[in-house]
Amino acid sequence: MLLINKLLPMLVLPLGLSLLLMVAGLVFCRRLLIGLAIMVLGMFSLPVVSTSLIRAVEGWSTRVPVSSLHNADAVVVLSGIVVQLEGAPLGEWNDGVDRFEGGIDLFKAGKAPVIVFTRGQVPWQPDAVPEGELLAKRATLLGVPENAILLTAVAGNTADEAVAAGKLLGVRSGVRKKIILVTSAFHMRRAAMQFEKAGFQVDRYPVDFQAGDNSEMTILDFLPDAGALEMSSIALREMIGWLYYWVKG
């Protein structure tokens, strides 16, 4: 099921959809399909389109000040931060490093007595170290006490992370726990839905914003760009996730 949830959306994201249309156009000799493939790829490669999509998904224009958040039972930091490779025993940061730094900032500000890292691990990388274990080691290097760090069971996606965190923190019928959830802004809405469904009261702390400031548009916003295509795909993937969980109820 996890493989299906991860791979099927790729077929309807701009690049996958364009390739399918292109192949169909060549096989059935339909220029219309080839033209449609080019149009889809071109449109979602425009920064003006990708920025609008990611802003719609993120829903925030600025970071929430740490001081504005109320105290909670735990700070929960979601995985998706580290790239593992030989020669880097604690991995290397990817664009999601703000999740880790945001969680550390919240803990050091005294917003919760413990910080929870999720043991994120996908099934097609069985030899990889669950990410939360690497983040826990990094946290101790920054002065976070070991007894204040908790790790969930291994989880393959956001829904699994929510369930695992619920078991770890003792959520059950009639017993709700308040957490501060830390994840990328584009991922926050879907993640918060899953943690609320798992029985948590969730305060949101979105980080890793993709849209940037609201600077005036230039001619470059109307020229195709590979980074814009990636941003469009991120936003559309989240929208597909919203639809999937909405259909599931």
Rank of each mutant, 00 (worst) to 15 (best):
V129N: 04
L243Q: 04
K248C: 11
K248I: 09
R30C: 13
E101D: 05
I104M: 06
V154I: 15
A235Q: 07
W60H: 15
G166T: 12
K197G: 09
L2K: 02
L53Q: 12
A165W: 09
G132I: 13
D203N: 12
L134A: 04
W93A: 15
D105N: 05
A139L: 02
F28A: 12
N157E: 12
F222Q: 02
V76F: 05
V83D: 15
G110Q: 09
V154R: 14
G25T: 07
R176D: 15
P65D: 03
T140C: 00
I240F: 15
A155M: 08
P14I: 04
L46A: 09
D208W: 12
R189P: 05
V12Y: 01
N5T: 09
V97P: 09
A159P: 11
G156D: 15
A192R: 06
A37C: 01
S215W: 02
V66H: 09
I38E: 00
G249M: 05
L229W: 11
I81M: 14
L168H: 13
L69Q: 11
G80D: 15
A235L: 11
V202T: 06
I54E: 08
L78F: 09
G35W: 01
L168D: 10
L243H: 01
V97E: 10
L90A: 11
L7K: 03
A112N: 02
S50F: 02
P47T: 01
A88S: 14
Y245G: 04
P47S: 00
P14C: 07
G156L: 04
S215T: 06
A164Y: 13
W246M: 04
F28N: 04
L13C: 10
E86V: 05
L141S: 03
L17R: 04
L32Q: 11
L2T: 13
S68R: 06
G143V: 04
P224G: 15
A112P: 00
I104W: 03
A24Q: 03
V122E: 05
V114C: 04
R204Y: 03
R176L: 10
T51N: 12
A109I: 14
A109D: 11
S45K: 08
W242P: 14
R55S: 14
N147Q: 08
M1F: 07
W124Q: 06
M39K: 00
S50Q: 01
A165K: 11
A162W: 10
V27K: 05
V76Y: 03
S233F: 05
R138K: 12
S68T: 14
L21Y: 02
L78Y: 03
P126M: 06
A185E: 04
E238L: 08
H187K: 06
S52R: 14
E146S: 10
